[in-house]
Design a binder for these strands. Structure first.
Lengths: 134, 134
DNA sequence: CTGGGTGCAAAGTATTTGCATGAAC
DNA sequence: GTTCATGCAAATACTTTGCACCCAG
């Protein structure tokens, strides 16, 4: 479970119903793009504005408890930050899943061939999910 | 070396000076975002329009000889399609480098834990490049 | 010659900003 | 009471479209 209010407070954001709802939507769905978030929030807050969503998403990304995931061929989605993980995208239904794999192997083979100081490794697998394969 | 005209013809695109220049810019720089491409092309074609660039980039992406690379925290860049590779981005100067690593290890560890049929694996490393480390 | 590309201007879409009001603390 | 979030409208940024003219084949 997740206590959105505490999370918001921890990151010095005032607790408003809209913010709580954003966090809870993301927690529930795992990943959402701006439009879907907006559509869902409209149900609870018929007069919520896109501006509010953008402002809050940006604030949460800055406070580093939200993460934008840029996906190939489709809109970015946002997720609550959790342990490091990679992503699986279904190119048929658009579903995004988290997956935990060990990327240190990659980083190691990297350090042999480059002098970059690697700080982050992003891996996105695209393919067809189990449901769509049927 | 690269023969842009032949490349364009192969992909059923009429050979125009603007298109040749786009391909050559990308070949020369490896990766470019729309704005930089536009700025550079303005030197050769003072009246080239952004619309032309967008139309051509889109056409080339559709013909599958250009690839859009969506990067974290910065604008997408485009590259000519070549052998499969991963990317390194310097978060300080923005430089993008190609790097060839074996991602099959990843894909294998993947197949044990998911039923996705993986078709593509995108890896982006972010960090600080050698020059910026100095 | 003909089809398609170019550049311009306008339209569309996405995102941000300014401001008055109201809610959180 | 003060600070800051909200929602609206306007502004900005980004991308696409329609069209008249022109060039590649």
């Amino acid at each position: 479970m997740l206590n959105s209010s505490i999370l918001l407070k921890e990151y010095d954001l005032k607790v408003t119903p809209q913010r709580v709802a954003i966090v809870e939507e993301l927690y529930k769905h795992g990943h959402m793009n701006i439009d879907d978030l907006y559509k869902n929030l409209l149900k609870k807050f018929p007069s919520i504005s896109l501006a509010t969503i953008y402002k809050n998403i940006n604030a949460m990304v800055e406070k580093i408890f939200l993460n934008e995931v840029k996906l190939p061929d489709t809109k970015s989605v946002y997720e609550l930050i959790k342990e490091e993980h990679s992503h699986l995208v279904c190119s048929s239904c658009g579903k995004v899943e988290d997956i935990i794999i060990d990327t240190s192997v990659l980083q190691n083979s990297m350090s042999n061939i480059t002098n970059f100081r690697i700080e982050n490794t992003e891996v996105i697998f695209s393919g067809i999910c189990e449901d769509c394969l049927k």
